[in-house]
């Protein structure tokens, strides 16, 4: 028994080693290093590694007092709360629709996947035109049916609509990615399961909610976690469309309605050059991501192995 346990460990190591070696050098060490950075103040730019001033948890304390950081976290949660369910819902919907035996399904799959390979920056620019005040296509469409709510400020210029507008662009761009994952997973569900349900007289909706969705749980779990991580890192979409705006008054201060933490992080790192502060910010993001993931694991863990 002992020998086989050892053999099991050794053979596992063989499978793991290529990944673990690269992980150790190029991910684990930088991870460790950036945590160390979060406990330091970085002043010099040249030879950063030897020019650190240890400050303990001062960066973290400063972050808790930083109103803009708190605001950015709120905006990030708002962003995640919109994009994760919408993104997953759209992907699932497309996958289920295209899993039908349609003659043109291959064509549609390609159509929905193509935007995913486009540069987010390019997509952002195009949508900026569509959303723009006075001249934008969407603004005009609303005007023709008598809605002038968007005429003066467009969609991205209004605090209430800016974030949803950014989310919609990203959902439409990214749905093809989730669709593929779901389509691939749908292949693993044997037809026999559906056939048995049909014999029992299950409707289309019942099959979807009682068979398909529960069996897709591992993928959904993956999509939720990856989606949350992406939301915590969101930067390009904001950079391309709103640069953090439009302004909202919070007490005395004006903050940006799309000023998400990913954007603030970039600002802190490259504009303000506060590398230690940025590292501390990243670790708070990590803590949040881990918490959210653990909750998801609890909620989405498959009840029975199948």
């Amino acid at each position: 028994m002992k020998r086989s346990a050892l053999a099991e460990n050794v053979s596992a190591l063989v499978f793991l080693s290529p990944f673990i070696v690269i992980f150790g050098v190029f991910l684990a060490w930088p991870l460790f290093y950036s945590f160390y950075l979060s406990l330091n103040k970085v002043t010099a730019l040249v030879n950063v590694f030897d020019n650190l001033t240890f400050v303990g948890f001062q960066n973290f304390i400063a972050l808790f007092k930083d109103g803009l950081f708190g605001w950015s976290l709120l905006m990030t949660l708002y962003y995640a709360a919109l994009i994760v369910p919408l993104g997953i819902g759209t992907s699932l919907l497309l996958a289920v629709l295209l899993n039908n035996k349609l003659r043109l399904s291959r064509l549609f799959r390609t159509a929905f996947f193509l935007p995913y390979v486009l540069d987010l920056f390019v997509v952002g620019i195009v949508w900026t035109f569509i959303y723009s005040p006075h001249f934008g296509v969407l603004t005009r469409i609303f005007e023709t049916v008598g809605i002038t709510y968007f005429s003066e400020q467009g969609f991205l210029g209004r605090p209430a609509t800016a974030m949803p507008a950014v989310v919609i662009v990203n959902v439409l761009k990214g749905a093809g990615f989730g669709m593929i994952l779901y389509l691939a997973a749908l292949q693993n569900i044997p037809d026999s399961v559906y056939e048995a349900a049909e014999v029992d007289g299950a409707s289309w909706w019942q099959k979807l909610t009682r068979i398909t969705i529960p069996l897709l749980r591992p993928v959904t779990l993956f999509m939720v976690i990856v989606g949350v991580v992406a939301a915590l890192n969101a930067f390009v979409e904001v950079f391309a469309m709103t640069t953090g705006g439009p302004s909202v008054n919070v007490g005395e201060r004006a903050y940006g309605a799309t000023w998400v933490t990913g954007y603030y992080l970039f600002d802190t790192f490259y504009v303000r050059l506060k590398l230690g502060y940025a590292a501390a910010m990243s670790y708070i993001l990590l803590a949040i991501a881990v918490t959210v993931s653990l909750i998801n694991l609890r909620l989405l863990r498959p009840k029975t192995d199948y």
Partner: peptide, 26 residues
């Protein structure tokens, strides 16, 4: 496979994905 520290190693690996990519560059 079953091996020592499996769950813990997996957790650390997954956690690395949650640190913003910017932190890795330098």
């Amino acid at each position: 496979k079953n091996f020592i520290l499996k769950e813990k190693v997996f957790a650390v690996i997954i956690a690395s994905m949650m640190v913003p990519g910017l932190m890795y560059v330098v």
